[in-house]
Simulated scan of single mutants.
Amino acid sequence: MSDDPGAEDGADDERWFVVGGRRWRRTDPALPDDLRAALTSHLGRGRSAVRVAKNRDDADAVSAARRRVGIAKHGLGERGPRWWDEPVADRIERARDALRQLADLDESGAD
């Protein structure tokens, strides 16, 4: 199912989960709990904003909300570079940078 060499050594369970036959990347387990919680909160807000914007048929708001979702998912390691291929310090810095970007969105009222 995977072209990932880690799949043979059991690492696959830590890296991926499957829902409805589709494989999804797990959140980086090295992230500190407070950082993970903050990013997960932003992710939930973004997903909620996507639903609301779709119900209002507001394409600009959908785009802004999806941007928030994307930033949060990158910070969590669920998108972008494979977290298991990077040093932990770089992964944590990426998550902190994502949180800063999300805070900037909040300050600017972007969604």
Rank of each mutant, 00 (worst) to 15 (best):
S2Y: 01
D4A: 08
P5K: 08
G6F: 14
G6Q: 05
A7L: 10
D9R: 01
D9C: 15
G10W: 07
A11R: 13
D13E: 15
D13Q: 15
D13Y: 13
E14Q: 14
F17M: 13
F17G: 12
V18P: 05
V18F: 05
V19S: 10
G20M: 10
G21N: 09
G21R: 05
R23I: 07
R23A: 09
W24A: 00
T27D: 10
A30C: 07
P32A: 05
P32C: 09
D34I: 05
D34V: 04
L35T: 06
A37G: 03
A37P: 02
A38I: 04
L39M: 03
L39D: 01
T40N: 07
S41T: 15
H42F: 12
H42K: 13
R45V: 00
R45I: 00
R47K: 14
R47T: 03
R47F: 01
S48W: 14
A49E: 13
V50Y: 10
V50I: 08
V50N: 08
A53Y: 01
A53E: 07
K54R: 15
N55G: 13
R56D: 12
D57K: 08
D58E: 04
D60K: 13
A61I: 03
S63A: 13
S63E: 10
A64P: 07
A64G: 08
A64D: 11
A65H: 06
A65G: 11
R66F: 03
R66T: 10
G70H: 15
G70I: 12
I71Q: 05
I71F: 08
I71T: 12
I71K: 07
A72R: 04
K73C: 11
K73Q: 14
H74C: 00
G77A: 03
G77E: 11
G77Y: 10
E78S: 01
R79V: 02
R79L: 01
R79M: 06
G80W: 02
G80K: 01
P81C: 00
W83R: 05
E86V: 14
E86T: 11
E86H: 09
V88S: 00
D90I: 04
D90M: 15
D90Q: 10
D90G: 14
I92S: 04
I92W: 02
A95E: 01
R96K: 15
R96E: 15
A98T: 00
A98P: 06
L99Y: 04
Q101D: 08
Q101N: 00
A103T: 12
D104I: 15
D104K: 11
D104L: 11
D106I: 04
E107F: 05
S108C: 00
A110D: 02
A110N: 01
A110M: 02
D111C: 00
D111G: 13
